[in-house]
Nucleic acid binder design. Structure first.
Lengths: 258, 258
DNA sequence: CGCCGACTTGACACCAATCAAGATAAGTGG
DNA sequence: CCACTTATCTTGATTGGTGTCAAGTCGGCG
């Protein structure tokens, strides 16, 4: 059990057009440095809480395996999923001594728990290490800004296209040879991530399918038919023509129409 | 001119409910530390570019006076304003050696320009200073997450209420005695910040006015009539009743629930 | 006074939230 | 294994929200 898994090539939120290089995740060396003060947490199943908004923050966490959802509830009670954390991501940085987000597993996961006090000592003792962590936080900051762009400017279909495109760079979820994307989340989580309702998320899939961009095999397994079309959709204006995306309709879908 | 101005009590984006304490801005000591390697830039007017998306990033910037808008253009050409920077805020952190956002003055401003190379040296030489900067970035990260909440869950009226409430804590803009708020931005900037169209921003003001929450004296000067009402609006559901604001339920929104 | 940009308002069409009702998949107990 | 319950997902209908075009108003400045 002292194997240390390979670091994934890119962070979850990175877009296709701006590939996120390895240095934006914590490097193997940095992770090893952190592991020396870590406690391993193993989770067998999804929906298990790791930390919660408002708790005193004595630990930060490093994802080693699996997917974690980072969320916060608005005062209205509405949940917003701020990000999905994948291996190499850091989470649980305190603000005023407390967590400001909640984190739950989405699937089985292995996570390293790091005492924040000792983290700080390490950072003070090794400024280069601290600088690397700083750059990691800056990177996460950029990812948050990209989500501001998405939520501020794109309609639901475009947001879904962005979400899908983000996943195509992660081999763990996308089987490139067969063009199969395995979504790690259900429609509820997806809706809370996109800032919409589950029904709208389902409708967005339906429309992408009607335009020949993807095909739903099951609700969690999507065949990707037209990456260029997805990118065009994402880049287009919010109020774009909906009718026929671009002229092509895959042979499998000719509706004799009505 | 070696006076060092008082640090504002709170950062721009902080909400009323979660007051942002002084330590989230750079402290006076930290700012002085930075000033030792800084070049002062003075801007007499708004709309002057400071740095632009894609440029090689050799400097970071510290706002001393005035308001700066941080923006990015989507591939569709649509501009999104990610944040407004106020005194004590840091901006221009590079990603991959380049700026990823653009910054322009909104009003007259004084800004300290810091060579990024020397900044890094300073951070390596003084880990405590670096840790303070890290916490500052973490705080900005939180602010970005709060914007994700706002954009993902709130309608235009609520976003405008959030925007207004954010400003009420800044004495530079809000004359508490006379309940007068002086907006530093025009409707275009406001719309790009809220993720909507200028027309919708105007309509949102009209509706807040029709509900007796605010009154427009000029397009940039707003009289605040009902702070509680604004907070209720912000906290409410996205699809809430608009008609009469004031048959309000006390904010003790206990989750009695069904 | 007249121009021009910023702002506002109206009209209209499209988007998306909500309620409601199936349809499908996943458990659960017999 | 099947019948049943349940959760998840999908689709339809309806209504309110909001982007867009267009027209009009206001204010500042020459």
């Amino acid at each position: 059990m002292n194997r240390w898994p390979e670091i994934r090539a890119r962070s979850f939120d990175g877009s296709i057009d701006r590939p996120v290089a390895l240095e934006n995740l914590l490097s193997r060396k940095e992770q090893e440095q952190l592991r020396s003060i870590a406690t391993v947490l193993e989770f067998n199943r999804g929906k298990t809480p790791i930390f919660s908004d408002g708790e005193e923050a004595r630990f930060v966490y490093l994802v080693d395996e699996g997917v974690i959802r980072i969320s916060r509830c608005a005062e209205s009670g509405q949940r917003q999923i701020l990000a999905f954390s994948v291996p190499g991501d850091l989470m649980g940085l305190p603000d005023g001594g407390r967590y400001v987000n909640s984190a739950e597993t989405v699937s089985a996961a292995r996570i390293y728990r790091l005492p924040w006090q000792r983290m700080q000592q390490m950072m003070l003792a090794d400024p280069q290490f601290q600088l690397n962590l700083l750059m990691k936080v800056v990177h996460d900051f950029r990812q948050a800004q990209m989500r501001i762009m998405t939520l501020g400017q794109q309609n639901i279909y475009q947001r879904l296209a962005s979400f899908i495109l983000d996943f195509l760079g992660i081999p763990e979820f996308y089987d490139e040879k067969r063009s199969l994307l395995k979504l790690p989340v259900n429609r509820f989580d997806l809706a809370d991530y996109l800032g919409t309702a589950p029904e709208s998320a389902a409708r967005a899939f339906a429309r992408l399918e009607s335009q020949g961009l993807v095909r739903r095999l099951t609700s969690r397994t999507i065949e990707i038919l037209d990456i260029d079309g997805l990118q065009l959709l994402r880049r287009g204006p919010r109020r774009g023509h909906s009718a026929e995306t671009h002229d092509r309709i895959p042979p499998s879908l000719q509706e004799h129409n009505a």
